[in-house]
Design a protein around this nucleic acid. Structure first.
Lengths: 205, 205
DNA sequence: GTCTATATCCCGATAGAC
DNA sequence: GTCTATCGGGATATAGAC
């Protein structure tokens, strides 16, 4: 009996977890497509195939939905960071992470947060998981940045924070969309172009 | 009598023009501060000091308000472009224009448009003045870009369009805000940092 | 926990007097 | 042209039955 009960509970928890993952994935897609303000909770519910009231049993507010999507994004970034081989030069590892974020954005999977939304900002900075994930990403990238500056691969004259922020900003760089809408370039080349301008700049070398 | 009437009409038109300019300026400020979606027409009316219904006598929709602000921005950009001395190298003229836009953004005067707002996009591309202004800016900058690439100042391997879009994208670069919020850097240095990473890139030279 | 139905609020836009 | 007052739509969030 105990095992059966345990199995039942586990099964229930599994289903609940799966549903919540489906919700977060739908939120991620909608955030990437329309941004936070334009996304409506009705759309999320319709996308998942449940009633809106059911959504609020899992997430108590629209901001909580977005926060969950952001935590998912941070987990994915940390996975990509962890997947880089230790032996690779720091600069190449940084390029790989930035390239990944550009590919995600170009694929329409990068959630777009509004520049300054008071309620959303409050929810995010009040969320420990989010803050710890953000700190972890910053720390890992910060180590690589310092190492790359030490070897002279990255410009040592730039503050490390400025470099880090420049990487973060690639996640909302409109140049990708501009080039895609303009047409004439395959996705790989668009990514290569933006990556080049980010690291090598616009001036000739 | 004729002169008096003429003066009266001119005076009225002048007042009307001044009021509309005040409206557009308020819209510009609010767009820079909160973005299009978060800006409410009530706020604009309150800022100008008139009733909301009076606003709609000048501009028939919220989108029209934003479009007017964008036309103002394009005029200001064209003025800055025209102010560059012909004798200066094209690269320096481009740097000056980008620097100006960074300074405007850092001062909180750069209107922020939503990435993809269907109704606003429709209003903008339906506005001849806006489209012509945008074309004029693109043309003038495009000439300088081509010249700078010809002399080898800008990387000739990059498509000119990619360079142009990269300049446009500086108007919504969040790195400025990040560095400002982080503290520790005066505005001039923040502008210099972003300008440097834009043209010279992150890698050492 | 899931549903239908509804409360509540906010915002863009308008009516109509002056 | 300016005002006060209001309409109508849409969005977040909740009530209450099952």
């Amino acid at each position: 009996m105990k095992p059966t009960t345990a199995v039942k509970i586990s099964f229930k928890q599994h289903m609940l977890r799966a549903r919540e993952e489906a919700i977060v994935q739908a939120v991620n897609r909608l955030l990437a497509e329309k941004g936070f303000e334009a996304m409506t909770v009705d759309e999320v519910a319709a996308q998942v195939g449940i009633a809106k009231a059911s959504l609020y049993k899992h997430f108590c507010s629209k901001e909580a939905l977005a926060a969950a999507a952001m935590r998912l994004l941070l987990r994915r970034v940390l996975d990509v960071i962890a997947a880089q081989p230790d032996s690779a030069p720091p600069l190449e590892k940084l390029r790989a992470v930035v390239r990944w974020s550009l590919e995600v954005k170009l694929a329409g999977d990068m959630p777009q947060l509004p520049g300054q939304n008071s309620t959303l900002r409050a929810t995010l900075i009040a969320n420990e998981d989010y803050l710890m994930g953000l700190q972890a990403v910053s720390d890992r990238l910060g180590e690589w940045i310092a190492a790359a500056q030490a070897t002279g691969a990255l410009n040592p004259a730039l503050p490390a924070r400025a470099i880090l922020y420049t990487f973060f900003a690639r996640a909302c760089d409109p140049v990708l969309e501009f080039l895609k809408l303009g047409g004439g370039y395959p996705d790989e080349q668009i990514v290569a172009l933006v990556l080049s301008t980010c690291f090598e700049g616009l001036c000739a070398r």
